[in-house]
């Protein structure tokens, strides 16, 4: 379980996170939604400690994560996997080396064991026969999937995904959503996903947090989201034409 309490952060003289609190439970896909520029990426980077918060507290279980130094954080970091918005694959390494990297760095597995794990993870994300390719030879969606494979290579307890389905076609996007939900259940992970894709919100939203201008405006699940009376949330949810029509016709 991850708990954040009243975290705030200013960047470049502007307050980009304002007093946000939330609880993320294991075995659930927790979603953070909000417009572009609302602070989702910043929020996620604060939770994992890539950005230092100005005030507040971040708990992993009963460990106060934001007060730990680099060495102590390392132990928790080994249990984290993260998919970055731009994939962040190491571009000097092949697909296989990318996924194997955390295993090389932190395990004492033999080469064959590592290879087996790598291939297992790549199969999970439907990437086969691409072990020797470099990231520059992959499409955007393939990069995302390889990045997911790398994130789950170490069987993490915590999984963070920054926009896993932006830039993907609807079908692949659904495959990725399902994959994230499946492995979350399988490994009983605490998963936090940033998204502005309403499709995956309605599929995956067991717990949804809506952020606007760095503030948490609403919290709930997918069955509550359509009935909420939060004005900003409604604007976000019913932004596209199809959703608007559905709402009109429901009346």
């Amino acid at each position: 379980m991850i708990r954040v309490e009243n975290i705030s952060l200013s960047l470049g003289g502007r307050e980009v996170l304002k007093d946000v609190s939330a609880v993320f439970e294991p075995g659930k896909t927790n979603l953070i939604i909000g417009k572009s520029g609302s602070g989702k990426t910043v929020f996620l980077k604060c939770i994992v400690g890539l950005l230092e918060i100005d005030s507040g507290a971040i708990w992993y279980g009963d460990v106060l994560f934001n007060k730990l130094d680099f060495r102590a954080r390392k132990e928790i970091r080994k249990e984290m996997g993260m998919l970055f918005q731009g994939s962040a694959l190491f571009d000097s390494m092949t697909v296989e080396e990318n996924v194997r990297f955390p295993l090389d760095m932190f395990t004492t597995m033999s080469y064959d064991e590592k290879l087996e794990r790598v291939n297992f993870c790549l199969e999970r994300v439907n990437i086969t026969d691409s072990n020797r390719l470099l990231p520059s030879e992959l499409s955007g969606g393939m990069k995302k999937r390889v990045a997911i494979a790398r994130a789950i290579a170490m069987k993490p307890r915590y999984l963070f995904c920054d926009e896993p389905n932006s830039g993907l076609d609807p079908k692949t996007s659904i495959v990725i959503d399902e994959l994230i939900r499946e492995i979350t259940l399988e490994l009983n992970m605490t998963t936090i996903v940033n998204t502005h894709d309403m499709n995956s919100v309605m599929e995956n939203g067991e717990k949804i947090i809506f952020i606007e201008e760095g503030e948490k405006c609403w919290e709930g699940n997918k069955s509550q989201i359509l009935q909420s009376d939060c004005k900003l949330l409604n604007e976000f949810v019913f932004a596209n034409a199809l959703a608007k029509q559905l709402k009109e016709s429901a009346r």
């Binding site: 980077k45 994992v48 890539l50 680099f70 954080r73 390392k74 132990e75 970091r77 080994k78 984290m80 993260m82 970055f84 918005q85 731009g86 962040a88 694959l89 190491f90 571009d91 990297f101 955390p102 760095m105 932190f106």
Partner: peptide, 18 residues
């Protein structure tokens, strides 16, 4: 610099690599 702006350095840090 490219590793920095494409978040590869963040990815390393996140894994717990110095």
């Amino acid at each position: 610099g490219t590793m920095r702006i494409t978040e590869q350095i963040d990815a390393l840090e996140l894994m717990g690599v110095n």
